[in-house]
Write a protein that binds this DNA or RNA. Structure first.
Lengths: 236, 236
DNA sequence: GAGGTTAGTGACAGCCGCTGACACTTGACA
DNA sequence: TGTCAAGTGTCAGCGGCTGTCACTAACCTC
């Protein structure tokens, strides 16, 4: 129970152990698969007892999401910092875009960014982890809804719009994330493009008639029309 | 008289065992909680071996979602049956509304509908089950996107709109489901109202300024739970 | 209907995730 | 330097889940 100002040796040691566990876990998960990695293997790599692992993490899953937690907090803070004159949907959009520029350093302070990217793809492709990921995102969306409601001065329980706008936004961002992980360009630039591309599709997708050009610029065709800025890759 | 369509004794016995397991599992889950219910308790209630349980279900979770699977298939089929002239967002809306009328019988053929409702609330309030629920919903959304793309004659991988419209729809439906489970009126009428109410908030939530009435066609509305006109009530 | 085939099951052993209990080590602080 | 508490290791044990194998019962053929 130290003051938050100075870490102290004990605290530093704890942090080091925790970081080592996260790194070892992510390394092993991405190398051999999540299910095929046992907790015993992780603790052996760090040379602590299995009991210690479960004192740091509620479960094997939690170790896999350690970095995600940091990223999410970073994004939530970015939304809170948006100027209050922005509309809710705009604030969310700008926050996520601005976030891509600074998120790198935040990640790198914990693990190599390349390891984080591999972890992200692992999560998307591992059913058990994907499930947890989606639940966590719902939790984040609830916090976002509270934030938006506060910004606009409405009651989050009486007015459905905060949760609705966040749910719409979250749904589209999931698509962008999925497309990013499934593609081959893992640069920040690619993610920015996918983000704006998908967000810009919200209007057209809700249009009453997809066959006339009342929303999408490139129009459509029956076959493999490459539409607009949608730089999606394969389907695997 | 045994017709060719008749399952056969072996098959019928299997179905009976499976149904018994589902009922016992849901009964125990809702009565004592998901985590606090052991597989041994379930198999004891049906008087089979634990090994048999895991031959029917990949895990304890799968038993909890047995009825949900039926409901989802039912809804997917309802979307496929919508007249092709409807816009995608309309087809989804009408399908879910029409679905509430017939879903009761579908459920009742497996377990008492009241047990299903308790199970639904259990899922929403149990983190482990909620995570699986969300992942399953994403799977359903992918199928919906394929269906929509087919209806509109577009390539689901080249045109982002099918997945976008489904993601928007799915996100809002999750909110409606959550509100339903959290409320106190578990009637079908209540769910219909919540559904239309939330769907109608999509436009207003995306409006640039929540403080003036410039939403997409519908004026803004301060509280939810409002009733009355969903406007386009043709359920066919 | 006798006999062979196969699907379904039970019994057993064992791995892995996870937890409680308790004793021991070590940093913190007087 | 001694006391205290945080952090850790060890051990025992439960519950979810799987592989194996022998056994039973439904199916199929003659």
């Amino acid at each position: 129970m130290e003051t938050a100002s100075r870490p102290g040796l004990r605290e530093r040691k704890k942090q080091r152990t925790r970081d080592a566990l996260v790194r070892a876990a992510l390394e092993l998960f991405t190398a051999n698969g999540y299910e095929r990695t046992t907790v015993d293997e992780i603790v052996e790599a760090v040379d602590v007892s299995q009991r210690t692992f479960f004192r740091y993490f509620a479960g094997k899953e939690e170790a896999a999401f350690a970095v995600q937690t940091t990223v999410e907090a970073h994004f939530l803070e970015a939304v809170r910092r948006r100027p209050p004159h922005e509309a809710p949907s705009q604030a969310l959009r700008q926050a996520v875009l601005a976030n891509w520029d600074t998120i790198g350093e935040t990640i790198e302070s914990v693990v190599p960014i390349e390891l984080h990217l591999r972890t992200f793809r692992l999560i998307e492709s591992t059913p058990a982890l994907l499930a947890v990921h989606l639940r966590r995102q719902e939790g984040l969306e609830e916090q976002l809804a509270q934030t938006i409601a506060e910004r606009e001065g409405v009651d989050v329980d009486a007015d459905p719009r905060p949760r609705v706008v966040v749910a719409l936004f979250g749904g589209v961002m999931r698509l962008a994330g999925r497309a990013w992980g499934a593609g081959e360009d893992f640069s920040v630039a690619a993610m920015r493009e996918l983000t704006t591309s998908y967000l810009d599709q919200m209007g057209p997708a809700l249009a009453t008639d997809w066959r006339t050009r009342d929303g999408e610029g490139s129009g459509r065709d029956g076959g493999h029309g490459r539409s607009g800025g949608d730089g999606r890759g394969d389907t695997e």
